[in-house]
Amino acid sequence: MAERPTTSWRHGVAEEAKELAAGTLDPECACMMGLFPDELLTATDEVLDSFEDELPGLGEASDERVFVVVERVVLALNAVSESHNEAAFETDEREALCDYIDQSLNEHGVDVVLTARQGLGRYQLTDRWRKW
């Protein structure tokens, strides 16, 4: 199963906290808690929970239905980003979220080559709605 990006982000926050507590990391070098505050992680997980709830049976769905689900998750992630001053997701985070959406769809039988049927490139599945 595709690993949620928030899982690795939470792991990074926890590792940094351990290093700070042990005195092996200079507090001025700590950045994970600033990049991934709990409110951001919780909001992102809520969006991904909803997305995952829509995945079962999507492999047999029409392209239009798949795009509705993708649009919904992307717009919800846009809202998360907006609530964090448009700075919730940097390049690596954006790529991780897009990969997660792609992998999750694949795991549920969705052939993401459906983008070609819509005149889009292979990795443009989220581009139509994505602001992050």
Results as ranks from 00 to 15, higher is better:
A96D: 12
H11Y: 12
R122N: 13
C31Y: 13
N85T: 06
V113A: 15
S83W: 01
E64N: 02
E60R: 14
A88L: 07
L41N: 06
N78M: 08
T24D: 15
G23C: 12
R65N: 04
S8K: 14
E60I: 08
Q124H: 14
F67M: 09
E15D: 13
D127N: 14
T24K: 14
V13K: 14
A87Q: 13
V13A: 07
E95Q: 09
G12D: 07
D111F: 07
S81N: 15
H11C: 09
A21E: 15
T44H: 01
W9L: 10
A14R: 07
V68I: 08
L125H: 09
H108A: 00
D45C: 00
G23E: 14
A116D: 09
R117Q: 06
A30L: 08
N106L: 08
V70R: 01
S81F: 02
A116E: 14
E16G: 11
T115H: 08
C31N: 10
H84K: 05
V112D: 11
H108E: 00
P5N: 02
G109D: 12
E46I: 00
R117A: 11
V69S: 02
W9G: 07
A116P: 04
E16K: 12
H11D: 14
P56G: 02
L75F: 03
E15S: 11
D45R: 00
T44Y: 02
N85I: 04
D102A: 06
S8T: 15
K131S: 11
T115F: 12
A22Y: 06
N78G: 05
E71N: 12
M33F: 05
T24G: 13
N85E: 11
L77I: 12
S62H: 04
I101P: 01
N106W: 08
K131F: 09
W129Q: 05
N78I: 10
D26S: 10
D102Q: 15
R65S: 07
E64F: 02
V73M: 01
Y100E: 03
C98H: 11
S83N: 14
A87L: 10
D38H: 13
P56M: 03
V113E: 12
M33N: 10
E39K: 13
E93H: 02
V66W: 04
M1W: 00
M32T: 08
S62D: 07
G23Q: 15
V74D: 05
K18Q: 15
A22K: 09
S62C: 05
D92P: 08
T7Y: 08
G119P: 10
D49H: 02
E3P: 00
E19C: 06
D63S: 08
I101R: 01
G12V: 03
F67A: 04
S83C: 02
K131T: 12
E28K: 15
V110C: 09
A87G: 06
E46N: 05
M32P: 05
V110G: 07
R122D: 15
E107H: 06
Q118K: 12
G34E: 07
Y100D: 03
G121Y: 09
F51H: 00
W132C: 08
